[in-house]
Design a protein around this nucleic acid. Structure first.
Lengths: 344, 344
DNA sequence: AAAATTTTTTCAAACGTTTGCATTCGTTAT
DNA sequence: ATAACGAATGCAAACGTTTGAAAAAATTTT
């Protein structure tokens, strides 16, 4: 029933009592084909809904025009912005993006990479999963390198690979966030940190730490608590912060979600934002401008990252032997809104 | 440089002075292969990083184990939840999901569908784009049907196709939202509607309208204003609502984003939520529980939709001639939170 | 009408893999 | 020594398409 085989060039050839070559050339407007023949064949092809089998072409040309995008999640604004950026550049060039979501899972990531290679994907954009990062296994990446499939790291990266990378300057973004809080006059700045080990988390943490150092503020370990980027994961940590003998007067959240979660807990305690506690997030997600109070945050150019990553890929693809890998780091921007605007 | 051809079975065969058949069988643990031969070949294959060319296999078997997921956007919580649901069921079965984002664009949708067919995708999950819906063109879908590629509609649908569908019961969800507001005691309920023409928008609007009717509340056209689902798109409409001579005392937003935008505008005017104005959203996105005030909303089971859609696909795939298309409609649930909890 | 030329079509190989059937090789039984 | 057998391997075709070179057909020139 559902096994109505798609029409092939051979079918059409049989119908016109000619060779497949003729049909192929007719369909591709080859000049050496008789005008009538061409027209007849094209009409018939359209009529029966002929559609070129790209699989066979891929085999023949060793080109699949497919790129892999392997990301831990697509739930957040940032990732979808990156994908949009990739799409903007690569879709017009005829590439299909194969989006693979690893759910931070090492085995799934490994499987996806293997599959992408088997499917002769022409390039891979990778933001490694949390588990991969934790475990430190990276044989599955060796495989990609060995096959010389262009591999572009996005945000999360291994230090020890010779590849191109496109990352946001998380360090200076975080630094600017904390510096802003200090400038306003906040003294005890807590950090709701991302999961340990991830570049993103650690860079932002470093920015936080170094900024405090620069301003001669001693670091209080109890003001640094982990979250997992999700809004829920900020609830308990924030409560713990507020319950301290000497609670913080400002919180720097590793992203907007976490910052929003923290705000909610703070407001529930009857505290004022930014009066009692100042808040800064990270991402400049669309919602951050419309929370109550609106959220001061660090803008993270996801779309641009996607476009830069595309550029890196294209460079590598067209690159000669003396091609060198690039490491793009895009700047962030401090977006000041209500959640930190205490009159100092 | 980057043209180091992947190792093929033929290469291995040359190396061992045997035929490709032998190598193929050795790699696939065929019983008729000598134990030593098998071991040697397998070891060598691993050493040189041999990876089976799935493209050639696809051609041979006419199976690609690839499914297309064509959606207007992946920016919202709901869509990613759907994708997660699809993934949950289909990934373990060996399917690769090819996620295509149309950005509500007809031409892009058409191109993607054509490409998916050309690539011999074995099934397509489709949520049609706004433009497609508006224009009413659907030849690109005829093509899919003609080729008997299983096509499952998600949420947005054409009425006139013989296909399976998985949708959320938007109508009754909206109805319940408005009924809740009425029960609480709100009298003038506005609706920030989605874009005209989309099933999702229209169903929710109908639910809103019919609920008002049922309770004998006359519909005031000026209380119904369009948005585009984005948070920003709620700002101006909400201001317009508040500026009315007889402003509403409750707003039903077509989704959480819009509701959140509305809340922001209302709070900026110094009005109280839910005291002066009650708000209900739609989606139960993670953030909705943590806004201030937290948002009463309608939960929309995205993950479940994805899983149901997968089931529909599998049914159709394994179905016999007497297979009939299913039309799954999943129920919603009213999640009552602060934004509507006025003491009546 | 034959030769030269141009136009149009066909042939065959290639891409990488699998698989039914045939073949080869060594071993055992007669 | 030869037949019979089993184990291991090779052959060839197939999937659908493109493409250089060869062939055939149609047209023009002599």
């Amino acid at each position: 029933m559902n096994s109505s085989r798609p029409v092939t060039i051979k079918d059409i050839a049989r119908r016109f009592r000619c060779s497949p070559s003729t049909v192929s050339r007719a369909l591709n407007d080859h000049p050496a084909i008789n005008e009538d023949t061409r027209k007849n064949i094209q009409e018939y092809a359209k009529e029966v809904g002929y559609q070129r089998n790209e699989v066979s072409l891929s085999l023949l040309n060793k080109k699949t025009a497919t790129l892999g995008v392997v990301v831990p999640t697509i739930g957040n604004y940032y990732e979808t912005a990156v994908i949009e950026g990739l799409h903007t550049v690569l879709q017009p060039l005829g590439y299909t993006l194969n989006i693979c979501v690893t759910n931070e899972n090492y085995l799934l990531e490994k499987e996806y990479l293997s599959k992408l290679l088997s499917n002769r994907t022409e390039g891979i954009f990778l933001s490694v999963s949390q588990e991969t990062y934790d475990s430190g296994y990276y044989e599955h990446l060796e495989n990609v390198i060995q096959r010389k499939t262009p591999l572009i790291f996005i945000d999360r990266e291994y230090e020890d690979f010779e590849t191109s990378r496109a990352t946001v300057d998380d360090y200076h973004g975080a630094f600017a966030a904390v510096e802003h809080l200090i400038t306003i006059g906040y003294k005890n700045i807590a950090h709701l940190k991302g999961p340990n080990g991830l570049t993103v988390s650690e860079q932002r943490f470093k920015g936080y730490r170094d900024c405090l150092k620069k301003y001669g503020v001693s670091i209080r370990e109890e003001l640094i608590i982990n979250t997992n980027f999700q809004v829920e994961s900020a609830i308990v940590p924030t409560k713990r912060l507020l319950d301290l003998d000497s609670p913080p007067d400002a919180i720097f959240g590793v992203n907007d979600q976490v910052a929003i979660g923290a705000m909610r807990v703070i407001l529930d305690r009857g505290l004022k934002i930014p009066g009692d506690i100042g808040i800064v997030g990270f991402d400049n997600s669309p919602i951050s401008a419309y929370t109550y109070p609106s959220l001061t945050t660090i803008s993270r150019p996801g779309r641009k990252i996607g476009m830069e990553a595309s550029r890196l890929f294209l460079n590598q693809l067209n690159g000669s032997g003396d091609f060198v890998h690039e490491n793009i780091v895009l700047p962030t921007e401090l977006i000041i809104r209500e959640s930190s605007l205490r009159i100092s």
